[in-house]
Simulated assay, not measured.
Amino acid sequence: MATPHAARRNITRTALDEAQHAVDVLRRSLADAQVTLPSLQVDLPGATSGHPMVDLGRLRADEAVRLAQALRHGGVSA
């Protein structure tokens, strides 16, 4: 039988993996739309508490406009 500590470690690992997967998927999708979120990363406090979270960070104003266009139109044309 798993100890409470081992069970928590498994939940944390799963949350970290889920959050990292979300970061990877989002980064690829943003790149397809020619948008870069330089601070995009796993939110460690959230993930280590068992709640997978992603920190979107900050971005330049022109990147924010490009992101809004991509969301509105399903992509950005070059």
Rank of each mutant, 00 (worst) to 15 (best):
M1K: 12
T3L: 11
T3A: 06
H5S: 12
H5W: 02
A6V: 11
A7D: 08
R9P: 00
R9Y: 02
N10W: 09
I11T: 14
I11N: 12
R13F: 09
R13W: 07
A15M: 05
D17K: 13
D17A: 14
H21I: 03
A22R: 15
V23Y: 00
V23L: 02
V25H: 08
L26I: 13
L26N: 08
R27D: 15
R27Y: 02
R28K: 14
L30F: 03
A31P: 02
D32P: 04
D32Q: 13
A33F: 07
Q34W: 06
T36W: 02
L40S: 04
L40P: 01
G46R: 03
A47K: 01
P52S: 05
M53N: 05
M53G: 02
M53H: 11
D55M: 06
L56G: 00
L56V: 12
L56N: 00
L56T: 10
G57Q: 06
G57D: 05
R60K: 12
R60V: 00
R60E: 15
A61H: 14
A61Q: 12
D62R: 13
D62N: 12
E63A: 11
A64H: 07
V65E: 09
V65A: 09
V65Q: 05
R66Y: 07
L67F: 06
A68I: 05
Q69V: 05
R72G: 10
R72L: 15
G75Q: 02
G75L: 01
G75S: 09
G75P: 04
V76N: 15
